[in-house]
Computed example of a mutant assay.
Amino acid sequence: MSSPLPASTDTIDAAAAQWIARRDRGLSATEQDDYMAWLRADPRHAAAIARHAAVLERMMGLGAWQPELSAEPNPDLFAPPARRPWRVLAPVFALAAALVLGLFVWQSASPPAPTPQKTFLRVNERQALADGSVVELKDGSRLDMRFTSGERRVRLTGEAHFTVAKNPARPFIVEALGVEVRAVGTAFNVRVDAASVEVLVTEGKVRVDEPARLAAMSAPTPTAPAPAEPEVFLTAGQQVVVPLAASAPAPVVATVSKAQIRTALEWQTPRLQFFETPLAEAVTEFNRHNPNPLVLADSALGSVPIGGTFRVDNVEGFVRLLELTVDVRSEPRADGAVVLKRAR
């Protein structure tokens, strides 16, 4: 009897796109186990997830792009299609485009009627846990809690920042794709990616246990050998990336700067979210949260529909994206205001 043929690249890519979509809305405990089994079944699976996730990550980075740090965003993301329409691109790119932050979208076809909304400010979900700890969840992330008298355990899908209430008798454990982050009273960020778990400590100290070490510590026989991997401890200002691949090298603890910490946590910044919103309304919303106002010199510009999600404090990035995607130019005034005009 012949062996089954290996899955084609197209089949793997389609499955990877589906897993990315599931991860975005949050994996259940059973789905997390299935996801790990699928990743380990074929090395091409992790490569496909990483490839598609990199595309999505690259596009989502536009939401935090600030012109004062780089003169231009990646031009490929704004270049008009030269050879083929977007409809023929692979499904994963459609998924990435649908989730991108800060990217304007105008469609020639009439879109479905949006749900009327006048509240554009979007903040991350914050949960006050029963023990006094506080969790801030990034969009699309999910948390499952299992508190007992001996420990406080949560299972994370996505990314979250934890501020843990001190209780030495009940350690706080974050479980993410087989990796465990153990703390007593501290503040730290955990990010679950396609092929790794990233931990960043902003206060206190945590211990990070890899899947291999956990398996060795939980061996049923008392004569089980000591865990092969050393303990990994992090203190404030340190970060570690734990790869999920079985053959990956041991993680290395790195010291990060305050600027790097700000970059890693900038997802916590409140954002303004628009969908087919008239530019005049978007300008009004930005002006609510910033001291230097935007001014529309041409009233006809106010009816131009825009869409996207933007940091409330990133007015300059919003203006630059308007200049790149709409027939608009900007002129700063001496009083700090920025005037938006039609480009001539």
Score class of each variant (00 low, 15 high):
Asp193Tyr: 13
Ile173Ser: 03
Leu62Phe: 11
Leu121Ile: 11
Phe274Pro: 00
Gln268His: 08
Leu294Thr: 09
Ser303Glu: 10
Ser8Phe: 05
Gln117Glu: 03
Ser299Pro: 13
Ser133Thr: 10
Lys205Val: 15
Lys166Asn: 13
Asp313Leu: 06
Pro85Ser: 04
Arg84Lys: 12
Ile12His: 01
Ala195His: 13
Ala71Ser: 02
Gly178Asn: 05
Gly317Trp: 10
Ala219Ile: 11
Val339Ser: 00
Ala194Phe: 04
Arg213Gly: 04
Thr202Gly: 01
Pro81Ile: 12
Glu68Tyr: 15
Arg22His: 10
Arg182Met: 06
Arg152Thr: 08
Arg23Thr: 12
Val55Phe: 13
Val319Ile: 14
Glu198His: 14
Leu101Pro: 14
Val174Ile: 10
Gln18Tyr: 15
Ala46Cys: 02
Val100Gly: 03
Glu31Ile: 12
Ser28Leu: 03
Gly26Asp: 02
Val92Gly: 11
Ala48His: 05
Phe93Gly: 06
Glu331Val: 15
Asn287Phe: 10
Thr11Leu: 03
Phe162Leu: 02
Pro73Gln: 01
Arg311Gln: 08
Glu175Arg: 14
Ala169Asn: 09
Ala46Glu: 02
Pro81Tyr: 10
Val283Met: 01
Ala29Arg: 08
Arg142Glu: 03
Asp34Gly: 08
Ser196Gln: 04
Ala82Trp: 09
Leu265Tyr: 08
Thr269Asn: 04
Gln107His: 11
Ala334Lys: 14
Gln127Cys: 14
Glu323Phe: 12
Ala259Thr: 14
Arg87Thr: 15
Ala216Tyr: 11
Asn287Cys: 04
Ala264Glu: 01
Ala48Lys: 06
Arg288Phe: 08
Ala130Thr: 13
Asp13Arg: 11
Glu180Ala: 09
Ala46Asp: 01
Ala98Thr: 13
Pro332Lys: 06
Val295Met: 02
Val319Lys: 08
Ala82Leu: 08
Pro332Cys: 05
Ala47Val: 13
Pro91Ile: 07
Thr157Ser: 04
Arg51Met: 05
Val338Gly: 05
Leu265Gly: 04
Ala226Cys: 07
Met59His: 07
Ala245Arg: 03
Pro278Tyr: 07
Leu56Tyr: 13
Thr148Val: 07
Arg22Glu: 05
Pro222Thr: 14
Thr9Val: 14
Leu272Asn: 01
Ser108Leu: 14
Ser149Asp: 15
Ala15Asp: 04
Glu57Met: 13
Arg152Leu: 04
Pro4Leu: 03
Ala297Asn: 06
